[in-house]
Amino acid sequence: MTAPEPLTPADCDLKDFAFMPLDVSRLRDSELASNETPEACWAAVLLWSASWHQVPAASMPNDEMWIATQARYAIRGKIDKAWKDVRPGALRGWIECSDGRLYHPVVAEKARDAWKAKLEQRWRTECGRIKKHNDRHEGANVPKPTFEEWMSLGCPQGHPLFVPRDTGGNPEDKTGDNASKRQGEGQGQGDPTTSVPDGTGGMPPVKSPDQMTKDELWAAGKSLLAQAGTPEKQCGSIVGKLVADYTPEIVIEAVRAAVIERPADPIAYLKACCQHAAGQRKAPNKQEALEANNRAVADRLAAELAGAEQ
Rank of each mutant, 00 (worst) to 15 (best):
R122P: 00
W123F: 05
T125F: 00
T125G: 15
T125M: 10
E126T: 01
E126I: 03
E126D: 13
G128M: 02
I130T: 12
I130S: 08
I130Y: 07
I130W: 05
K131D: 12
K132R: 14
N134D: 07
D135Y: 05
D135R: 15
R136E: 15
H137Q: 10
H137S: 01
V142Q: 03
V142M: 12
V142F: 03
V142K: 07
P143Q: 05
P143L: 04
K144S: 13
K144F: 02
P145V: 07
F147V: 15
E148F: 08
E148N: 05
E149N: 11
E149R: 08
W150C: 06
M151K: 11
M151A: 12
M151P: 00
S152I: 02
L153N: 05
G154K: 13
G154M: 08
G154T: 14
C155K: 13
P156G: 10
P156Q: 04
P156F: 06
Q157V: 00
Q157R: 07
Q157A: 15
G158M: 03
H159Y: 01
P160I: 05
L161C: 06
L161E: 02
F162I: 00
F162L: 11
V163N: 04
V163S: 15
V163P: 01
V163L: 04
P164N: 02
P164D: 03
D166M: 07
D166E: 06
T167Y: 10
T167D: 08
T167K: 06
T167G: 02
G168E: 12
G169A: 11
G169N: 09
N170W: 05
P171E: 09
P171V: 12
D173E: 09
D173Y: 04
D173W: 08
D173R: 09
K174R: 09
T175Q: 09
G176Q: 11
G176K: 11
G176C: 06
D177Y: 06
D177M: 09
D177H: 06
N178G: 08
S180L: 14
S180C: 05
K181G: 00
K181C: 00
K181E: 12
K181M: 01
Q183Y: 02
Q183V: 02
G184L: 07
E185N: 14
E185G: 01
E185P: 00
G186I: 01
G186H: 07
G186V: 01
G186P: 06
G186E: 05
Q187L: 05
G188S: 10
G188D: 04
G188P: 03
Q189V: 13
Q189K: 01
G190I: 04
G190M: 14
D191T: 02
P192S: 00
P192Q: 05
T193W: 03
T194V: 14
S195L: 03
V196I: 15
D198A: 15
G199Y: 14
G199C: 08
T200P: 11
T200S: 12
G201A: 11
G201K: 10
G201S: 10
G202H: 01
M203L: 15
M203K: 14
M203C: 05
M203D: 00
M203R: 15
P204D: 04
P204L: 15
P205V: 13
P205K: 11
V206P: 08
K207W: 04
S208T: 14
P209E: 12
D210H: 12
D210W: 09
D210V: 00
Q211S: 11
Q211D: 15
Q211C: 01
